[in-house]
Design a protein around this nucleic acid. Structure first.
Lengths: 395, 395
DNA sequence: ATCATTAATCCGAATCTCGGACGAACATGT
DNA sequence: ACATGTTCGTCCGAGATTCGGATTAATGAT
């Protein structure tokens, strides 16, 4: 399966992957365009593209909006990823429920399922559900089961990308030590790749969403907890053991509330889902949900505005140091809480603009994610696509 | 000079570099050993080694302590980097002075010069001094000028590694826009590579010093200002424009002193060289130097101990967020102020242990750098060696 | 002295990329 | 309508590189 690291064939593999990624990113690009973008020769690109066409990974799109060059010349043949070329499965396992997504190679959604299954306990049940649903979904959309390239799984827990085994985690306690990739791989008969959900959210927004083109970005996932994913230098950065991105446990309030991590005043204690909604306990009752807050914001309620802006400022405080050190191009906000968007981001921008050293402060853009609830599952798909491109596609 | 990215020759280059790095790391390793370590075939390794021997980069060491296999067999020929194979020049440009270092390929120091020239103004003079001193130094140690592979330069300013041109900087104001690499390259007739000094300090400690083996580390440079360099995922991370690592301008004191960056309460305002020594203005007079503080510490002076421990705590505060996000293996302390070592690091450890979320808190080690004053210049040498391995050595 | 064992080299085969030549497809100007 | 210029894509041969197996070298054990 794996190739000799320095071999001739490995070179071709890398070049193949280069071509596929280029098409993925640019969409509708000609052979010559690929050659220019990659630095490979036309000949080589042609040869690689020929293979990829034969295997059904790419297609020649019809020459609808072709021409551009003023002086004429033979029109380019636009290439795209073949929508029917193959599908990829993406799964997001959260404590609140399970999302299973089925897309083509370019991230176009072919089918989706969501279920509010209790994931926390009973890993076996959850995995069984995922496997069944995935296979069912593929069949339901009438896709050839033989042309599914792989599956990616996003999990709300630190994960070692080597072993695919979950680390001890307070989020999904009963999952400690479970080898998700192996167990699922067995059931669905596909290569399975597992990653942390915040990291994969970052990967998704970078590949398909609001982070396109920004080679250094921070994805902030606001949900029950607060997580973050990092794209650094055009690569997903997971840290040595997969625990990178613990944004939620940065202390921001001296002597604040006790957090589930054992420390005090963590960001999570002041901007988590619960912290946000509980601010309305006095006025709107204890049952306030995030949807209620969104509604209040839409009605321009000053209290709601204040609370979310304050949350934004807190996030900003936690991010200042990181932005100073990493100098990211963009900060992308995702997760359910992202729905309270505008005032939250304004609070963040305010703090970042004021507290970052001048050159950096002007370079960081704070924007909302574009993929919504699906971000993490789409990231799992991006992961599977990448890994699969490197393996299966390769021969 | 530069090679096509996906070409056959580029593959060989990569393999060459692989071999050189393997020898650099393992020292005294046979061809077969390299093959096993790299995954390349014996044949390929032999061929690459033959080239490298011919070029004088490697040497066959004498077979002193050879044999190991019990059943006999032809003894392996140990290979090492050729100490006389070539030299590399490293320069550190700080406002306080200029250091020029000359080493062999494995970082062994062959010669050194230091001068307290005023670098801030008159870039021309400084560059002339560097060029003259460098050439002089090579001659003084009797090294063949033809076998100097390159020069690296560490500068106390943000720098775009592409353009080699300095960005606007409050540190070396008159240097804005100066193309150091081109100007020096012209004078010394060598390929010159330029980088930020904190970044290169990180590279140095990672390659030669206290950070060996830690693929994710943060190097903290304590000097007039406070800078940091990052090694992430086994690579130097410089950020998009070279401004990454602005540790000194992370706000740590609400409403603190005004910093030269324009904000208030930056880390630099409380742990910079001046901030540290000025704490002794009342007791020891305004002329207190860092050396005095070191002496006080050696004498176990409680005030000095307190001041440096407090500084350590402040640094810890600035680092908590970053460690939570990046999960580094090690934090290495360098720069002149590192001499006040122990209490400072204890202050840092205290804060980090207490404020980091549990799994990460236990994984981060805080240690002193091992390269002292030379770290940044040695990093420049590592940079030049790397870049040179990829270019010059390559053909 | 001979055998077994490991190291390094030699040789032919296979793979891969590249540059130049060539044909294809289109726009423009006469 | 036709020639011309331009860009796109393919074909072909040359050159570079890696690999596996056979061969030679060097040593310990029997």
């Amino acid at each position: 399966m794996s190739e000799a690291p320095g071999s001739l064939t490995s070179l071709r593999s890398r070049n193949r992957l280069l071509v596929v990624e280029t098409v993925q990113r640019r969409g509708r690009i000609s052979r010559v365009g690929i050659a220019r973008a990659t630095g490979l020769s036309r000949t080589t690109v042609s040869s690689l593209v020929a293979d990829l066409l034969a295997e059904g990974v790419l297609t020649e799109a019809d020459g609808a909006g072709r021409r551009a060059s003023p002086g004429g010349g033979r029109p380019a043949t636009p290439l795209t990823l073949n929508p029917e070329g193959g599908g990829v499965l993406g799964v997001h396992l959260r404590h609140a429920g399970i999302r299973v997504l089925f897309t083509d190679l370019s991230g176009g959604v072919l089918g989706e399922r969501y279920s509010e299954i209790d994931v926390d306990h009973r890993p076996d049940d959850a995995l069984a559900y995922v496997a069944d649903t995935a296979l069912d979904l593929v069949a339901a959309v009438g896709h050839d089961a033989g042309r599914v390239f792989g599956m990616g799984v996003a999990v709300s827990a630190p994960i070692r990308s080597r072993s695919h085994t979950l680390r001890t985690s307070s989020v999904l306690a009963d999952w400690t030590g479970v080898d998700i990739a192996a167990r699922l791989g067995e059931r669905v008969g596909l290569p399975v790749h597992v990653g942390n959900d915040a990291n994969l959210g970052a990967l998704a927004e970078w590949t398909f969403g609001a982070g396109q083109g920004a080679d250094d970005l921070i994805y902030v996932m606001l949900s029950d907890g607060v997580g973050a994913g990092l794209i650094l230098g055009g690569e997903l950065y997971e840290g040595a053991t997969g625990s990178a991105g613990e944004l939620g446990h940065i202390p921001v309030v001296d002597g604040g509330y006790v957090c589930r991590c054992g420390n005090r005043g963590c960001l999570e204690t002041v901007v988590g889902l619960r912290a946000l909604t509980s601010a309305f306990a006095h006025t709107r009752g204890p049952g306030t949900t995030i949807a209620d807050v969104v509604a209040l914001l839409a009605a321009d309620d000053p209290g709601a505005r204040r609370v979310t802006a304050d949350a934004g400022r807190m996030i900003g405080r936690a991010l200042v140091g990181i932005c100073a050190m990493l100098e990211p191009r963009r900060v992308v906000i995702g997760g359910e809480v992202a729905a309270v968007g505008r005032p939250l981001m304004e609070g963040m921008r305010e703090v970042l603009a004021r507290q970052l050293p001048p050159p950096i402060g002007q370079e960081v853009t704070v924007i909302a994610g574009r993929l919504g609830d699906r971000a993490e599952a789409l990231g799992a798909i991006a992961l599977a696509t990448q890994s699969t491109s490197a393996h299966l596609l390769t021969r």
